[in-house]
Lab assay of single mutants.
Amino acid sequence: PAHPYDRLKTTSTDPVSDIDVTRREAYLSSEEFKEKFGMTKEAFYKLPKWKQNKFKMAVQLF
């Protein structure tokens, strides 16, 4: 299930529990994912792991 970005980011005051914290981005809706990352999930997962992590750090999901 998708969760709002505000509850997934590492600085959230009301974090979602029971998620894989190493894959926070996977819980974003497709729309919100595209808004935050500027690309689709499919394109994101084709990137090298280090680049994925760099993007995730930039949007507080790492």
Rank of each mutant, 00 (worst) to 15 (best):
P1K: 14
P1Y: 13
P1M: 14
A2R: 14
A2P: 13
A2V: 15
H3L: 13
H3A: 03
P4D: 08
P4V: 04
Y5K: 05
Y5H: 07
Y5C: 13
D6Y: 01
R7E: 07
R7S: 10
R7K: 11
R7P: 08
L8T: 04
L8F: 05
L8P: 05
K9I: 12
K9A: 07
K9G: 07
K9V: 12
K9D: 09
T10W: 05
T10H: 06
T10N: 14
T11Y: 06
T11P: 05
T11H: 06
T11A: 04
T11C: 15
S12Q: 04
S12R: 03
S12H: 04
T13Y: 07
T13F: 07
T13M: 11
T13K: 09
T13G: 06
T13N: 12
D14G: 04
D14H: 10
D14A: 05
D14Y: 11
P15D: 05
P15K: 04
V16Y: 06
V16N: 01
V16P: 06
S17H: 14
S17R: 13
S17V: 13
D18C: 14
D18T: 07
I19A: 06
D20W: 02
D20C: 12
D20L: 03
D20I: 05
V21E: 12
V21Y: 11
V21W: 09
V21L: 05
T22H: 10
T22A: 09
T22D: 08
T22N: 11
R23C: 15
R23Q: 11
R23K: 12
R23D: 04
R24G: 04
R24P: 08
R24T: 11
R24F: 08
E25G: 03
E25P: 04
E25Y: 06
A26V: 10
A26L: 09
A26K: 08
Y27C: 11
Y27M: 03
Y27R: 01
Y27K: 05
Y27L: 05
Y27N: 02
Y27S: 05
Y27E: 06
L28S: 02
L28R: 01
L28E: 02
L28D: 02
S29L: 02
S29T: 13
S29C: 08
S29F: 05
S29M: 02
S29R: 03
S30H: 13
S30A: 14
S30K: 12
S30Q: 12
S30R: 12
S30W: 11
S30P: 14
E31N: 08
E31K: 10
E32H: 03
E32G: 03
E32P: 01
E32W: 06
F33Y: 02
F33S: 01
F33Q: 01
K34S: 14
K34H: 14
K34M: 15
K34W: 15
E35G: 05
E35Q: 14
E35P: 01
K36R: 12
K36S: 02
K36Q: 10
F37C: 07
G38F: 07
G38V: 05
G38Y: 06
G38E: 09
M39I: 06
M39L: 03
M39V: 03
M39Q: 02
M39K: 00
M39H: 00
M39A: 00
T40L: 08
T40D: 13
T40G: 07
K41T: 08
K41V: 05
K41P: 07
K41A: 08
K41I: 10
K41R: 11
E42T: 10
E42V: 10
E42F: 10
E42W: 10
A43L: 13
F44V: 00
F44Y: 02
F44N: 00
F44T: 00
F44K: 00
Y45L: 02
Y45Q: 03
Y45W: 06
Y45P: 00
Y45T: 05
K46Q: 12
K46E: 10
K46R: 14
L47G: 00
L47H: 02
L47V: 01
L47W: 02
P48Y: 01
P48T: 03
P48Q: 01
K49E: 08
K49W: 10
K49N: 05
K49A: 10
K49I: 14
K49M: 12
W50N: 02
W50A: 07
W50V: 04
W50S: 09
K51S: 06
K51A: 14
K51F: 12
K51H: 08
K51M: 15
K51D: 08
Q52R: 06
Q52H: 00
Q52K: 01
Q52N: 00
N53R: 11
N53S: 09
N53A: 12
N53W: 10
N53Q: 11
N53C: 13
K54S: 13
K54I: 13
K54T: 08
F55R: 08
F55L: 15
F55T: 04
K56W: 11
K56C: 12
K56H: 02
M57G: 02
M57H: 09
M57S: 07
M57L: 12
M57T: 06
M57N: 05
M57Q: 11
A58G: 05
A58E: 13
A58Q: 13
V59E: 05
V59F: 10
V59P: 01
Q60V: 04
Q60A: 12
Q60R: 09
Q60C: 15
L61Q: 04
L61R: 04
L61G: 09
L61H: 08
F62T: 15
F62C: 15
F62S: 15
F62H: 15
F62E: 15
